[in-house]
Computed example of a mutant assay.
Amino acid sequence: MKKSLMLACALALSVLSASAFAGDGFVRAEVGQSKVKGSLDGGDSAHDDDTAYSLRGGYWFNSNFAVEGNYSRFYDQTLYNDGVDYAKGKLSSIGLGVVVKEHATPTDLGFFVQLRGGIARGKLSVNSSLGNGSATSTKPYYGIGAGYDFSKTFGVSLNYDHNQGSGDGLRISANTLSLGLEARF
């Protein structure tokens, strides 16, 4: 299936006209705060906050549309430690999506708003004195942002993103507010 998906993407890209490739590659780093919530089907739930970061990269086909790949780390904390027994949890994701951006001016500089969304594969890892384990799930993610492009090659933004995952009766969500710096080349 992966080979079929890669072939379909390659064919779709080859059909695009040469002018569509007049855009820019980009890299983006974001850092902020995630609120991670977990709940069991039985009704028990808990939440915690942690510093989050995201590394994103992709290609702007024009000033309004891009594709992106991303890695995000939402949570990395000790859940329990009494000196003998311990439990540590990590929550991260890797994803692929699209970004749509609209500037307030016709020059494609200055203030903008953007929407992004796609599919992310989330991973919850637990390392404890009783053993280690992890679980993954693939779910949609989405986000919104507002920012300022200082030049054709640099911009900043404030972003809100929602990621989710589930499995074996556990549902997890991460809502992240972050500041992003983007360089285009």
Rank of each mutant, 00 (worst) to 15 (best):
M1K: 13
K3R: 08
S4G: 12
L7E: 11
A8H: 11
C9H: 07
L11V: 13
L13M: 12
S14V: 05
V15P: 03
V15G: 03
S17V: 02
F21D: 13
A22G: 09
D24G: 08
D24C: 10
F26V: 06
V27D: 07
R28D: 12
E30F: 03
Q33W: 07
Q33D: 07
Q33V: 08
S34V: 04
S34F: 02
K35C: 02
K35A: 05
V36Y: 00
L40A: 15
D41A: 12
G42D: 06
D44K: 13
D44V: 10
H47V: 06
D49I: 05
D49G: 13
D50Y: 09
T51L: 13
A52H: 08
L55K: 12
G58F: 04
G58K: 03
G58L: 07
Y59D: 07
W60H: 13
F61D: 00
F61A: 06
N64R: 07
G69P: 07
N70Q: 09
N70I: 02
R73Y: 10
Y75E: 01
Y75A: 00
D76C: 05
Q77E: 14
T78R: 09
T78K: 12
L79I: 15
D82E: 13
V84R: 13
V84W: 06
D85L: 14
Y86F: 15
Y86P: 00
A87W: 04
A87P: 01
K90E: 15
S92Y: 10
S92I: 01
S93N: 11
I94V: 14
G95Y: 04
G97M: 00
G97H: 01
G97A: 05
V98N: 01
V98L: 14
E102G: 14
E102Y: 13
H103Q: 03
T105Y: 05
T107Y: 13
T107S: 14
T107D: 14
D108P: 01
L109N: 10
G110M: 06
L115R: 07
R116F: 01
G117L: 11
G117Q: 07
G117K: 11
K123C: 01
S125E: 14
V126N: 03
S128I: 05
L130P: 03
N132L: 03
A135M: 11
S137Y: 08
S137W: 09
K139D: 15
K139L: 15
K139T: 12
K139Q: 15
P140H: 10
P140I: 07
P140F: 09
Y141C: 06
G145A: 10
G145I: 00
G147S: 04
G147T: 00
F154E: 07
V156W: 02
S157Q: 02
S157C: 02
L158I: 09
Y160A: 07
H162T: 04
H162C: 01
N163T: 04
S166R: 03
G167D: 04
D168S: 13
R171L: 06
I172W: 00
S173I: 00
S173P: 01
S173W: 00
A174L: 02
N175G: 03
N175K: 05
T176R: 02
S178P: 03
L179V: 11
L181C: 04
L181A: 14
R184Q: 05
R184P: 04
F185L: 05
